[in-house]
Design a binder for these strands. Structure first.
Lengths: 160, 160
DNA sequence: TGAAACTTGATGCATATGCATCTATATCAC
DNA sequence: GTGATATAGATGCATATGCATCAAGTTTCA
């Protein structure tokens, strides 16, 4: 479970809330709390079904989309917004599990190309119905398509 | 940085997206990615200013609000949505840092009452301007008050 | 060309998280 | 009351994360 909780309206000067209006503070508090709870819930659903965690899924999906060319770790890093050292070890684990393969990059001898293995493909495909159902339960059941679209739009602005 | 990335439209049967409509899936993907990125960014801002991490802030704020009576760990756990074993050790660290105090609960000898210390109070107060500025930079600068309110509302529905 | 600066990815070490389980106390059913 | 069950909180162990730094390769530019 994520840390949640609300930022402070207990701050001394409520009247002069410099730096963030109260609506933004409230939205922030909810964002942290709700996203943490939902991620935990979905993660638990995946685990309960014997599926790999979300982070693994994301890697598998990106590599699947990248196709035969594979991806450089540094590209994957940028897409998934994970820290470099973190990705390095995530790939270690996934490689050990046989889901991805590292190969030398012919164009840059510092680098690698990562590719999904057949087994990795199978695992991602097996995970998707479970993942989709979890999203259905935790998101789609609570938000209509219009609301979901609005939410995505607002989050997009936040990502700026 | 959090794991981000999108769930699969690479799934086999795109036409029959049982369990979650595409809008929900998209909103979910954005939620995970954006909230992760923002939490990382805010956390980095706090750290850069020498302030305690978000999780600590949340604990301090709840305890400050609870006042003299303090809070039971189990209550804090429910409010912050953290796992029990996790909170137990978070409190260990914060106690070691002198920001919170554990005391035996007079009404339940299994339990404790947690209270914020004077130093904890000072730390939380010192952190708030930094935290507020971070929220301002990362949220308020990108969302007007009306949008922030809409976002909070949608997230509230998601929390259901 | 060749030295300085930068990029890519790995890794040792400290810290944090998750899981299972444990102890102690409280509550419930009888 | 007493035994069964539930709840509060801690903890050993495995795994994951963050930080700093490193080695190897690439780019830049005098």
């Amino acid at each position: 479970m994520a840390h949640g909780g609300g930022p402070g309206n207990a701050g001394a000067d409520r009247g002069a809330d410099r730096g963030a209006d109260p609506e933004a503070v409230h939205a922030w508090a909810r964002l942290v709390r709700v996203s943490g709870a939902l991620v935990s819930a979905v993660e638990a659903d995946l685990k309960a079904a014997g599926m790999p965690p979300l982070g693994w899924y994301d890697v598998l999906l990106e590599l699947e989309r990248a196709g035969d060319a594979g991806l450089r770790p540094v590209e994957l890093q940028a897409r998934l917004l994970v820290a470099q050292y973190n990705l390095s070890r995530l790939i270690d684990r996934m490689e050990a599990a046989g889901l991805v393969a590292r190969a030398a990059d012919p164009d840059d001898r510092r680098g690698q190309r990562l590719r999904i293995t057949a087994e990795g493909l199978r695992r991602r495909e097996a995970a998707w119905p479970v993942y989709r159902a979890a999203i259905g339960r935790h998101v789609a059941a609570r938000l209509g398509p219009g609301e979901a679209r609005t939410l995505a739009g607002l989050l997009g602005k936040l990502a700026g």
